[in-house]
Design a protein around this nucleic acid. Structure first.
Lengths: 151, 151
DNA sequence: CGATATGTAACTTCGGCGGTTCCAAATCGT
DNA sequence: ACGATTTGGAACCGCCGAAGTTACATATCG
């Protein structure tokens, strides 16, 4: 799978941390530096997250990004769905099952049900963690090392 | 994710069906035709499945593949582990978190725990289905359409 | 010994994704 | 009004992994 989910979770985690310190919005460039990627890549993610109603962005000087909702109300499953839309957890082989063979389509069809169950299991697992929990835990570990905030 | 899991499940499903009809082994070429891929691709999969102790292969004339264990004792999770060894369900971004930023490594570390839980959820979900169940269900659907076996 | 099948190495091809550049649009301060 | 800043997004490049393909070695049966 893509690393989009990891980056998106990283973004939301940072926003939750900064929200606690102060209400200042964060720029895509600052986040790109933390993730070690290009600001444009971050903005592409932000587009999905914004459409999903998880973050709010503001253009222009002094603009940036902040959480659109309370971090307690955002789960990792929300993020997963926001950035993974259309992407399947399990890949099918491109050609599909042989329609001439009577068993192949049936196997493929049955596997789709299995995949739906597995996907639901992932959703439930990710849904058990909120962005607030994540930021709390991360914050705890940062303090344990005596560090201060990023920037 | 790769389509290796789909193909491997397809292979095991076919073997279970043929085991019921008769004890004849199936050739990699016949399975490749059903999956619509190259026989070599199937054999690569069979290598993993064989090493995992799920199938037995026999070389030479009259050779082929058959299940190494009772289909009731093989779960889809076994297949998943056999062919997905080393592959991660969630992709990390290549560069990794910025070690200069105090929050990035902590976020990455925390996400690893989240991923382990999600991966475990998938294992449990897939572990709830056996190859025998799959072949029964597929067999039922084939009969519902009045078809006969493949080849 | 020849036909058949697996086992595997080596190479090619192709698609997806992250990275990059570039510009439009919006917002703020002066 | 103008320039600085920052998001939005189109367009393209390059890399990497996986499937596909070819070729050949090995094993087994009649």
């Amino acid at each position: 799978m893509n690393s989009r989910f990891v980056m998106a979770a990283h973004v939301l985690g940072m926003l939750a941390l900064h929200e606690r310190e102060d209400a200042i919005t964060v720029t895509s460039e600052a986040m790109a530096e933390s993730i070690q990627t290009n600001p444009v890549v971050v903005r592409r993610l932000l587009g999905d997250l914004s459409r999903a109603g998880l973050v709010e962005t503001k253009r222009g000087a002094g603009g940036g990004v902040r959480l659109a909702r309370a971090p307690e109300s955002i789960t990792l499953c929300d993020i997963y769905k926001a950035v993974g839309e259309g992407a399947e957890l399990f890949g099918r082989h491109p050609a599909g099952p042989n329609p001439m063979c009577p068993v192949a389509p049936m196997v493929a069809e049955y596997l789709e049900e299995v995949f739906r169950r597995a996907e639901a299991a992932v959703h439930q697992s990710l849904g058990g963690t909120t962005v607030a929990q994540m930021s709390h835990e991360v914050d705890k570990r940062i303090r344990a090392l005596g560090g201060k905030g990023c920037r």
